[in-house]
Simulated scan of single mutants.
Amino acid sequence: MRWNWGTLPTQTTGKTFDRSVSKELQSQFAEYQARLNLRGLKGSGFRNYDDYLLKQYLQPSRTKYLAALLDSERETYLPKNTHMSWKNNQAAFTWEGYLAHVAQRKKTQPAFDGFDLSAGENNEFGTGTTEARHFTASTSGRSSS
């Protein structure tokens, strides 16, 4: 879930993360997604899942919600939700702003599995001959020791 939480601090420790590791994991996940040739609404492809979610679902939903409010209700709502803006009858916000608003990271880096192969999630990437691998080994064809 590196693409999702980025360098946001954990909820329990408040620590930030090694940015170089975060950047590497994000890049590897984007490459993995691109190889999947995923298709979204109307068959459109996407490389960045966060951008896709923002443009196809989250911003249109928030725009619809805000448009339905009375002006006075919107004027009360927006100062409490500073991660977004309202301009030309459109809601706009970034993925990072959205995440900071709705939740905090609960697991340390990497969030999905452990570098030392000790997390239960590592077993998901194992093979018939290897019990546990890091997800990068399964997505790139590399094997881990």
Rank of each mutant, 00 (worst) to 15 (best):
Q104F: 06
T10R: 14
G40V: 05
S61R: 00
W5S: 14
D113R: 00
D116I: 00
D116Y: 00
A91V: 14
N4S: 14
T16V: 12
N81V: 04
R2M: 07
L54M: 14
F135D: 02
A92E: 15
G128R: 01
F17E: 09
H83G: 02
V102S: 07
R62F: 07
A132N: 03
Q109M: 06
D71V: 05
Y49L: 08
S85K: 09
G43L: 11
L38F: 12
N88Y: 04
R105T: 05
S138F: 08
L117D: 11
N122K: 03
E96I: 10
M84H: 00
A111W: 01
H101A: 15
G14A: 08
K106N: 08
Y49V: 09
T127G: 02
E75L: 08
F115A: 15
E24I: 04
L99R: 13
R39Y: 01
L25R: 13
A91W: 00
L99D: 01
S61A: 07
G128L: 08
F93D: 11
L53I: 10
T94N: 11
K23H: 07
Y57L: 04
W86S: 07
N81C: 04
Q28L: 15
G43K: 15
T139P: 01
D18H: 04
D50W: 13
H134G: 04
D116A: 05
G126H: 06
S61M: 06
R35P: 00
L69Q: 10
D50S: 14
A137S: 07
Q28T: 12
T12A: 11
P110D: 03
G97F: 02
Y57S: 02
R2Y: 06
Q90C: 08
A30W: 13
D18E: 08
D18N: 15
L54E: 04
S44Q: 15
A100S: 09
G141S: 10
G45P: 07
F125I: 03
S72L: 09
Q104G: 07
F112Y: 14
G40P: 05
F46W: 14
W95S: 13
L53W: 13
E121I: 09
V102G: 02
A92M: 09
R35K: 12
A103Y: 02
A30I: 11
T139A: 10
L70A: 12
E24W: 06
H134E: 09
Y52F: 14
F125D: 01
P79G: 06
G6F: 01
N4R: 14
A111D: 06
P110Y: 01
Y52N: 05
V21A: 11
Q90Y: 00
S144N: 11
S138Q: 12
Y32P: 00
F112C: 07
Y98M: 12
N48A: 10
A91Q: 07
Q90P: 06
